Computed example of a mutant assay.
Amino acid sequence: MTGLTVAALATVGFLAYQASANAPLRPGAERASSSTPVTASKVPRDTRHPGALPAGSGAGRRVVYSLDDDRVWLVGDNGRARRSFPVAPGTVDPAPGSYPVTSRSNSITGTDGTPIEHVVRFTSVDGVAIGFSAAVDGSVPRQDPEARTGGIRESRTDGDAMWEFATIGEKVVVIR
């Protein structure tokens, strides 16, 4: 195999692992407090369809981000998921709750030094910006438990979909 093929397979394997409902918490991950907590401690999942939109994740058009599943759903006006995909979070997690998209950047450098695109920010925790983004080179960041990062990495294709969907003011619902 070429080096590029090996890297691509490693990235896909890592994202599949992160999407697993049984994946352990990330080393060094923090949980923040929130003024808008979700009422249930854990939103029930449809175990027959693991990628199914979680019940109790809100209503109407929204982005749903599951901390425990490392997965995102883009939900249309009709309350149905248009798209769902795994993500690779940073080391700082937002608290469960509902947040509006507050800012967007087409192209910047991530805290890990990687060029990223389609950054969609929705909150901050102790000065760490929390948002979705895609690495231009398609890479997944190596987790450093000592670094405080809030970037939630997605593939470039999923990043394109998030960019089109989550404009300023769009609701992001964070669940366990």
Rank of each mutant, 00 (worst) to 15 (best):
E146A: 15
V173C: 06
P27F: 04
R31C: 02
A147E: 10
S124V: 01
L25H: 10
P96T: 14
G28D: 03
V128N: 04
G51H: 10
D68K: 15
A161D: 12
D70E: 05
G150S: 09
P145Y: 11
V125N: 00
S124E: 05
S139A: 13
V119N: 01
L25G: 11
A19K: 08
S34C: 09
S103P: 00
T5Q: 15
T111N: 10
R121C: 00
K171E: 03
G58N: 09
A7S: 15
P115W: 01
V72K: 12
G131W: 01
A19C: 01
A23Q: 07
T11Y: 00
T167R: 12
S66K: 14
A161K: 07
R82A: 13
G127P: 02
G76S: 14
K42D: 14
D160T: 10
V101C: 04
Y65M: 12
R148V: 02
R83G: 07
Y65L: 14
A134M: 08
G13I: 04
H49I: 08
E164N: 13
I152G: 06
G56A: 07
L74R: 11
V120E: 00
G151C: 15
S57C: 09
S35M: 09
E170H: 08
P24I: 07
E170D: 02
G138D: 08
R142W: 07
A81S: 15
T149A: 13
D70G: 04
L15S: 08
S139N: 09
H118N: 15
L74G: 12
T36N: 15
H118C: 00
R156P: 00
T5A: 14
T102V: 15
S84W: 13
R104N: 03
A7K: 15
V136R: 03
V6A: 15
G76R: 06
A88M: 11
R148D: 03
A81W: 05
V173K: 09
G169N: 05
I152T: 14
A88W: 12
N78A: 11
G131M: 03
A7H: 14
V12G: 00
V92H: 05
A147H: 12
Y17Q: 02
T157W: 09
A7I: 12
R62K: 05
V38H: 04
S103Q: 13
R45K: 13
A135M: 05
S133I: 02
S98V: 14
E146K: 15
T91P: 11
D70F: 08
F165Q: 02
L4M: 14
E154H: 09
L53G: 05
I116W: 02
V63T: 12
A21H: 08
T111P: 01
A135W: 05
V38Q: 14
F132W: 10
S107F: 15
V120G: 02
